[in-house]
Design a protein around this nucleic acid. Sequence first.
DNA 1: TTGTACGCGTTATCAA
DNA 2: TTGATAACGCGTACAA
Lengths: 342, 342
Amino acid sequence: MKLGQATIKDIARELNVSSSTVSRALKDYPGISDETKRKVKELAEKLNYRPNAVALSLRKSKSFTIGVIIPEVVHFFFSTVISGIEEVAYANGYNVILCQTNEKLQRELSSIDTMLANQIDGLLVSYSKETEEFSHFSKLMAQNFPIVFFDRVPEIENTVNVTVNDYQGAYDATKHLISQGYTSIAHLAGPKNLTISKKRMDGYQAALRDHGLEINPDWILPCPMGTQEESMKITEQLFEEGGDFPNGFFASNDIAAAGAMMALKKLGYKVPKQVGVVGFSNWQFCSMIDPPLSTVAQPGFKMGEKATQLLLEMIDNKDRSYDATKTLVLETELLIRKSSVK
Amino acid sequence: MKLGQATIKDIARELNVSSSTVSRALKDYPGISDETKRKVKELAEKLNYRPNAVALSLRKSKSFTIGVIIPEVVHFFFSTVISGIEEVAYANGYNVILCQTNEKLQRELSSIDTMLANQIDGLLVSYSKETEEFSHFSKLMAQNFPIVFFDRVPEIENTVNVTVNDYQGAYDATKHLISQGYTSIAHLAGPKNLTISKKRMDGYQAALRDHGLEINPDWILPCPMGTQEESMKITEQLFEEGGDFPNGFFASNDIAAAGAMMALKKLGYKVPKQVGVVGFSNWQFCSMIDPPLSTVAQPGFKMGEKATQLLLEMIDNKDRSYDATKTLVLETELLIRKSSVK
DNA sequence: TTGTACGCGTTATCAA
DNA sequence: TTGATAACGCGTACAA
């Protein structure tokens, strides 16, 4: 720590008053003479005094710090969410301490441990792909510790969540492909244990059913990694197998969609003329690639803001209780670009 | 804070020993009977005891927390750096508290204030575009407070920095365009007060000079915002003006390069046949757009790692001193894709 | 082998 | 109007 950091005691000593007087003077408490106040504040200014937030945390059992658990920072959607979190936290005088799990459960567990040791006032969580069991969260909730889940929401009881309407987003995207005349639509699906993957899958299937199209299990293609390479390979394999080909792709994320488009190009298929493609998330590159990728935009920044607002409310509300699942669902927006318009 | 959080005192009371005994037992200090150790550890486990890091910070005047000041999280390069920072910090038992300035000086100043109040052990900084004066940093350095600057490095004395070789990267990119037969090369330049912008400009100009090409001031195009829209507009304007046109673009960032490419497409010019384009940073989308964008890759993750390693060394080294500027320069890599190959 | 006492920086309480 | 004291949770020098 810096040597030069002045404390209340330093001011008190120099002014020959007690530290309580200094403390009160600095906070404009009643019952301190204007003269003393003036002197104290002057010296504080001169010594560049800053209250020690660590001591305050200890004293008040409150750290004004919230923890954020996120799979990875280098991910357009998540970094957008972080940005929203940061804004609201900052505006309310809270610090944000960040841990990325890299999709590892072990990392999630130990991150939570250190954060708790640091007396965070609450936790914002989007859990890892490896997380299939949630007792490390429910234990905390049983102690009334404030947690808000965002995007990736666990299937346990009485949680507070913020998600987007993944079902509707997927439904809209698939319906759009159908309305454009694509009749046989494949789905590049996300990791199975994530609720968002299930919801997107459900929306996709519901749209097919509602429009009298049958669901072909061979065209449900799991892309657990969600990388470009993976979906390229999967798409190529699909076409190599022979038999019927899909003429539309709805991907549960943009990267997979881009990978499919690249594979299609390589295979000599024209997008959107022969095959239509829609992604999910609206990464920045969507409008830059050729053809520009239609996609379902998720309000990441807003999600970060809302989740943080909810968390801060829970923190302020000492008599909070987890008595029911409360989920705030943000609507998606289908952005139609060229990749899906015949 | 959670009510259920057990302290050393709780353990001591329950076991009828003093809290110092508990403290020592937990840390396997010599001179504690095995019996006592066992009992203490058992109960600690049972009560789910976690040392209170806040109390430790206060006691030791060390928080095991480092602060990170960054312009924005939603930026491929910076999020990559954060990821590197997080990894090294985590591996060494440090927490990362994050503030984004949104390119605002005011935000930078107040973020530093709160971080200092929270007793961070050191600071990693990439300053805002508005920052043109660095006394808020030099004051801290005068108190021997550990700071490492990364990417955006201030022009003040005796700093510790990690950058990439922006000059060489720009030189390589420009040289490559020349070697591909592009003879009149424009530069989409970054904000003037950033050293990285200057270095990239210098590299660009040096390459031109070294190959006997003249520098045309009309073709140095400032893109202070660095957005796609901005560079599209600038590129279109350039071609509307009439007169000679450049047949090559070296942009100081990928987004600007992508904007230029889109403008060129719109104007009916073929990339790379008629015009070559090279960007800077290697955003994810570079390989996805059409044609794929050649670019200068920056080792962002490595930069985060190295900067954090340096910072932790400074923190450990109590008798540190800022007696000279130390800059670690990481090399860039020119990635040649289709956008610049005739 | 264990306990006592103090201090890290701050503030709330009680007393003067 | 101000001061003395205790407490937040922990570690440690000193005493026993």
